[in-house]
Design a protein around this nucleic acid. Structure first.
Lengths: 114, 114
DNA sequence: TTCATAATTCGATATTTCTGGAATTATAAA
DNA sequence: TTTATAATTCCAGAAATATCGAATTATGAA
């Protein structure tokens, strides 16, 4: 996941998020924090059949945006903060180069309390 | 573009970027700065036929990530910094809520000179 | 073992997206 | 008006994604 061209990976990660259900799930897991959520609960909350959700979760996991961990019969999914961070960093790098003004604007608007 | 649910728009914007050629074009335009680039040049640089590129440019424009402006026979495309900023802000909002630690990390790593 | 539960993988269809040559539109020069 | 250039839109086939019931795997309890 790290030897390959980062842009190729970014396309994958963006594609994983470019879906109504998957984006909702990802946001759900990010706000759920480190404990994450159980597969079944995720499917239920998103109102999607388990088998469909399983595909979506696999897509997000392959893209390095979430992580799975089995605990007996349940599987916990949690956001992969490193992947998330990597994607955001990648997206921002170029603006900084090409349009530092706007980059500054973004930083101004983005505080954890705003 | 602003009355509709922002998550719906985000899915669209992410989808627009989730393509090797389109992501490359978008980055090209971001680094090109406010002058932007001409459609033909973009197609040439990306090694893609004009008609194919036209579709991709339209996709990015519909998603609010780039803007087009005709100047006689040429059409200039430039990055839409507002759209970009909106997308990044949207993606970050949740992490701040769910994982302020990581959010802080991202901010630390992201400076226009790093 | 046998049964029950949680989740995934299989398989087959439906839908969406991608691609690029041909035709068309927009603009300007001869 | 005629010709040329830049770009888009049309169209149709190819490729990739999405969906979800049924079958399967993994785990634990009776």
């Amino acid at each position: 996941m790290s030897a390959v061209n980062i842009q190729v990976w970014a396309v994958d990660a963006l594609g994983a998020l470019a879906h109504e259900t998957r984006l909702a799930v990802f946001r759900m897991l990010v706000t759920a924090g480190p404990d994450g959520m159980i597969a079944g609960t995720i499917a239920e909350q998103a109102k999607v059949p388990p088998s469909t959700m399983s595909h979506h979760l696999a897509t997000l996991e392959r893209a390095g945006l979430i992580q799975a961990e089995r605990e007996s019969r349940l599987i916990h999914y949690r956001a992969d903060y490193e992947g998330m961070s990597k994607l955001l960093t990648f997206l921002m790098k170029d603006c900084c180069q090409g349009a530092p003004d706007m980059c500054a604007d973004i930083f101004t608007n983005l505080t954890c309390n705003g």
